[in-house]
Design a protein around this nucleic acid. Structure first.
Lengths: 329, 329
DNA sequence: CTTCTATCTGGAATCGATTCCACAAAAAAA
DNA sequence: TTTTTTTGTGGAATCGATTCCAGATAGAAG
């Protein structure tokens, strides 16, 4: 591996001068510049970012902690992040926790040890020890999808989105609306979306039968099972169902169709997440698109602000969502 | 930021001793060890990976160059990579070329300057200057999805997969098989899959009408348009169609259904890629799953072999695919 | 009692860049 | 012509770790 020292020797100048040429800074004569560039060209010398960042304390790397790699949400988020970061010459260092809370703290430390210029954390449930770790991080930081007070946050309005969807059902004439959720430990998808559903029903004086509210996990089969349970245990068959993810909704739809019922005539279905899947199943699924790329771009911008300006005060950006009306309602 | 020097002072030992304790190497008395660990505990000191890797020449970072972030293939690949790398303590540094060939070379250099321990490149089309750049890289390297001689390669058998699918159509009694491809500049998806189709047809002495072979781009709408073109321009309506991606196939299916035709009775449809989408549309799409996660794991393992053992000879791993038979045929 | 080996420790060099500072030469201002 | 400013250059310190090496001490072997 070529070093700046060798370049300096070959060009018959000092390391200092080579550095100046590379960084285009300080006084360098045309003559010296020419010589150095020639040697660099000939040798294909590439300066070590590593050594550079040891001195300058800047790595041009952003750490991104994800709860799951390979989900549509994660990859849309990363896409949005990269759109902004790449433009500014930053690269993304991935950290996948696989929903393991201990790994979140571990990676936070690892990223710090790598001197990333900033960290973006997308988490589904946050515990006290994680929050404490974050507070003493002293690195530009943006939280996505969950709120941590005092920090920069990019949030989705899960509560309102869920409420809106119920309102939309009601507006379309449905009254007996069932709900397929996930564990409330997941604050956004589990807790808030359920709360939105319950509140919307209450505000409209609509009764919610206990068997209408089921809790599944994040996949299609679970949606199928939940819908089956609803139909098997209810006294009053619902005329609509909201699932908190598109997958669950697709599973539910599947069961409804398997039962020989018609969507939306017998039972209307809505999902949440705006996945590509939703658009192409039949009937196309009404869902809520949370503009995850936009969230990524927003988070990246907030982080860059911190890196450049250094304003660390609490920020909350709520990302707009869109209700995508399709023929499942 | 705390440094090893401060820890040494506080623990009343030398930096050397602190380093020994951290790395659990060399002779350290229990007494000294205890003192150092105590100080580290109290201060929350995290050693700088950056400084460390400057000296040791190891970063524990793998550069991954992707043609597109946020596609199902990319995210499945990264998932597979991460499964292996995380176990060994490596992290992934992302580089997204957005299908821009110049960026591939640029990122190759950038990753080298960052002293990543290895590079994984997933590319759709490779040009001469890229190949040259790779040859003089002198870093552990694995190519995914395309073949570069002399290097380690993880490949998908696009040609055979395509052929198999045609054979499957024929086996099921279809003879007039249309084809929706993409530009042949994309060697795997464009060129090889088309070749597989043409060869399979030829070997079975089946005629291919010119209008049956259409070229689209990577999205659903394009599949719709291609199918429309086929139906509008053909003299003999095909009874089956193979599309080189699931999206294209879904678009084609859409058109067929919109036309009031029945899948597979009137026209059978198959896609390629094994996307999740394919399973949930109706009718479920027959497709080929290329086990992209497996490719990721394989690529990661090959890279680790190079990093640890240093065997740089040409390797070719062909990843198995599965034909997923569903009711679209 | 001497010699050898194992254990323990820290000073100093090193990795490959940037940057402070001192100094020299040339150009501009007085 | 003298003084000041601008331009150009390189030596040496620095970033925060690891690691070579030399030296000290203690215990084992002869």
């Amino acid at each position: 591996m070529l070093t700046i020292k060798e370049i300096a020797e070959r060009a018959n100048v000092s390391r200092t001068t080579v550095s100046r040429v590379i960084n285009n800074a300080g006084y360098v004569s045309e003559e010296a510049k020419r010589k150095v560039l020639k040697v660099i060209e000939e040798t294909g010398y590439i300066p070590s970012e590593n050594a550079k960042s040891l001195r300058t304390k800047k790595t041009k790397v952003i750490g991104v902690i994800l709860p799951k790699i390979s989900t549509e949400t994660s990859s849309r988020l990363v896409k949005g992040l990269d759109e902004i970061f790449a433009k500014e010459g930053y690269q993304i260092l991935l950290a996948n926790t696989n929903l393991n809370p201990e790994k979140e703290i571990e990676y936070l430390k690892l990223l710090k040890s790598r001197h990333v210029d900033g960290i973006i954390l997308s988490a589904t449930n946050i515990n006290q020890s994680l929050v404490e770790e974050i507070y003493q991080l002293k690195i530009p930081f943006v939280m996505v999808g969950q709120h941590i007070s005092g920090m920069a946050n990019v949030l989705f309005d899960d509560y309102q989105a869920s409420k809106d969807m119920i309102q939309f059902f009601i507006h379309k004439g449905y009254q007996n609306i069932a709900f397929i959720g996930v564990t409330e430990e997941d604050r956004s998808v589990g807790y808030l979306r359920k709360l939105g559903y319950l509140d919307a029903m209450k505000e409209n004086q609509l009764a919610v039968e206990e068997s209408w509210v089921q809790t599944g996990i994040f996949n299609v089969d679970s949606g199928y099972e939940c819908m089956k349970t609803i139909m098997a245990t209810t006294k009053r068959t619902p005329d609509a169902v909201l699932a908190v993810t598109d997958r669950l909704a697709i599973g539910a739809s599947q069961y409804i169709k398997d039962k020989g019922l018609c969507i939306p005539k017998d039972i209307a279905v809505a999902g949440m997440g705006g996945s590509e899947l939703a658009r192409h199943i039949s009937p196309p699924l009404t869902t809520i698109d949370f503009s995850v790329e936009e969230a990524g771009r927003e988070a990246a911008s907030l982080l860059l602000e911190q890196i450049n300006g250094g304003n660390y005060h609490e920020t909350i950006k709520t990302i707009k969502y869109r209700l995508l009306e399709r023929s499942s309602i």
